[in-house]
């Protein structure tokens, strides 16, 4: 039992080892300690989904988990997807179908969509909407997000064949 905890966690493929205060939210750890500011907070009470990252293979709200809980695990953030010059197929689909405007909810939306596509690659539009219903977007009206996820799933399925 201690007031500061030593953690080892693999973030976007890189091993990280450091001390954290137990109360530090995973999202704050990513944003401040690791300067991975792609993960955004939108409500800090688990409703909006903007801070979603993937922890040990599951999309997770990083405002509802403490960094110390990620000890020994893996975290994937939006920074783990493609690069500016080589976007991930999901990012490419978001761009092609104009599935983002202000971009604030986008990283959380992408990480949720990625988890959804990995687990339910054949989801229809209604299932995609249901899967994304815990991620709020205030700009797009969701239409283009649904289209982008549906189209990205096709590309990702095809590339895995």
């Amino acid at each position: 039992m201690s007031e500061s905890a030593h953690i080892r966690v693999t973030v976007n493929g890189s091993p990280i080892e450091c001390d954290v205060e137990p109360r530090m939210l995973l999202g704050d750890f990513l944003r401040t300690t690791l300067a991975l500011t792609g993960t955004h907070f939108g409500c800090e009470h688990g409703v909006c989904g903007a801070c979603t990252v993937i922890v040990n293979g599951d999309s997770t709200r990083s405002c509802l988990m403490f960094a110390v809980q990620a000890d020994g695990g893996t975290v994937e953030t939006v920074e783990s997807l493609g690069t500016i010059d080589a976007l991930h197929p999901l990012q490419e689909a978001f761009r092609t179908h104009h599935a983002l405007q202000c971009g604030y909810c986008t990283p959380g939306m992408l990480m949720t969509a990625l988890d959804l596509i990995r687990k339910r690659p054949l989801a229809n539009d209604a299932e995609i909407r249901d899967g994304l219903s815990g991620n709020l977007c205030r700009c797009t009206g969701y239409q283009n997000i649904v289209i982008a996820v549906r189209e990205a799933a096709k590309v990702i399925r095809a590339s895995n064949l």
């Binding site: 979603t52 999309s59 997770t60 509802l64 949720t112 988890d115 249901d130 994304l132 219903s133 815990g134």
Partner: peptide
């Protein structure tokens, strides 16, 4: 279970 919150919340 499909009524229990959302996909990401059900993960955890």
């Amino acid at each position: 279970m499909s009524h229990v919150a959302h996909f990401g919340v059900r993960n955890r």
